[in-house]
Design a protein around this nucleic acid. Structure first.
Lengths: 231, 231
DNA sequence: TGAAACCAATTTGTATACACTGTGAATACA
DNA sequence: TGTATTCACAGTGTATACAAATTGGTTTCA
């Protein structure tokens, strides 16, 4: 099973890193060759990835990486805070010690990736961190929703991590600090605190995304009719 | 693909009807023989069912029908109203005319099954009705949560439909009426109304389940210390 | 020249044979 | 008699060969 699991993890990572772009077609034979599997188990890998929302399969048409269209974005912003808060609350109530240890390890991985400025690794570590919080919730109904939100969240954030403008470094540090606070809230079994921190964490992330999507306009030298002039 | 799709639908129906009991093991060879498929496509069917939460797969151990334990029940009651309301609100906002037509057809199927007192058919028709409302929401993040809730909801309700005590008939009529109201709310694009009806619908269903789980106590002829005596 | 039909090549879907793993029963040994 | 080991069997996992379907290009006819 190890080879198959490795294939799954790697494909997930590549989707999350946007190395496999949304909408990109996946060829069974080339994938099976590159992972040293035959087509049969590779197809099962694809089925599973489809089940988790990483890719989508169409009959006789093969697999494509899940799209990220405007419609989905709208739903993403509507849905994420609700689910994230519900998950965090339940995580604070139900987390096991083993899961808490795992969470701390993942936070360590995140800070390490941050230290060496490895953008994809940071995004992936962040992904695993929040995945573990999902597992802590122990809610089998919310978990798949969380999973799908995280896929798109990580993919959107990827652009942000890669940018790594000076002020983004501060924001990433802030995010890491919120992770620490969240670990603490879960460890102390405080659902209220966990929800509060999660809302802050979401607000930060949403701002990051908004800043990327709607950046500060370029200086407009042709018309000087705008309000706030630069110094 | 038709044969494979038929297999998927049939297995789903059998899981929902509790014909395949929670925890029951599924044998690949016997299933493949009974559906006239070879093991390869049948395994893909199982992968897909696992992805949707109907069954769960364990490496080298095969497939078992998803369990319904006490822990899950608790989470079910916590989660269902939140997700159902969110879905209904979005459905009222986003439903297409084609989906609305489908919904009406499914409601017709439900009333027909009710007319002939076909309990499993009622449960399945009800399942499809709510599945379509999920599709109407157009929210790819909430949809898998909705799907998993519905699986357990239908399986729990199965016991209730089968009971078909006299007063249950009234309650089923009530549920059918709520479906009509919901269709109307969606058709008139009223999210508030849709949410209100959904809450009523959930309350009714929850009461049904509670009544089944905690039935009226049997008359206690040994001790007469209880409060309200029968007439 | 345009459109429609057909054919070939590529890719997905299915079947079968074989390999591996886990389980349970029987046997050997303490 | 109790326990541990081994072996056989049942069932899952994988590879390969073959069938079906889609796509793109080419040819043919109006």
């Amino acid at each position: 099973m190890t080879k198959k699991d490795a294939c799954i993890s790697d494909l997930k990572a590549r989707v999350l890193a946007l190395e496999l772009a949304p909408g990109a077609a996946l060829d069974e034979v080339s994938l099976s060759e590159s992972y040293g599997l035959s087509r049969t188990p590779l197809r099962e890998v694809l089925q599973r990835l489809a089940g988790e929302g990483y890719i989508s399969l169409e009959a006789n048409r093969g697999a494509v990486v899940s799209a990220m269209d405007i419609a989905a974005m709208r739903q993403f912003f509507q849905t994420a805070p609700i689910i994230y808060c519900a998950i965090s609350r339940l995580a604070a109530e139900n987390a096991s010690l083993a899961q808490l240890a795992k969470l701390k390890a993942e936070q360590f991985g995140f800070t390490q990736a941050k230290a060496v400025l490895d953008a994809p690794a940071m995004a992936l570590a962040n992904h695993h961190f929040h995945e573990t919080i999902g597992a802590m919730s122990g809610n089998p109904y919310l978990l798949p929703a969380m999973g799908r939100l995280l896929i798109d969240h990580t993919r959107i954030s990827q652009r942000f991590y890669n940018a790594s403008a000076p002020h983004d470094g501060v924001r990433i540090t802030q995010a890491a600090h919120q992770h620490d606070l969240l670990i603490d809230a879960i460890e102390r079994r405080s659902p209220e605190k966990a929800v509060e921190i999660t809302l802050d964490h979401w607000a930060l992330s949403r701002d990051e995304i908004e800043r990327y999507v709607w950046p500060d306009p370029l200086p407009d030298d042709t018309t000087r009719r705008t309000t706030g002039e630069s110094t």
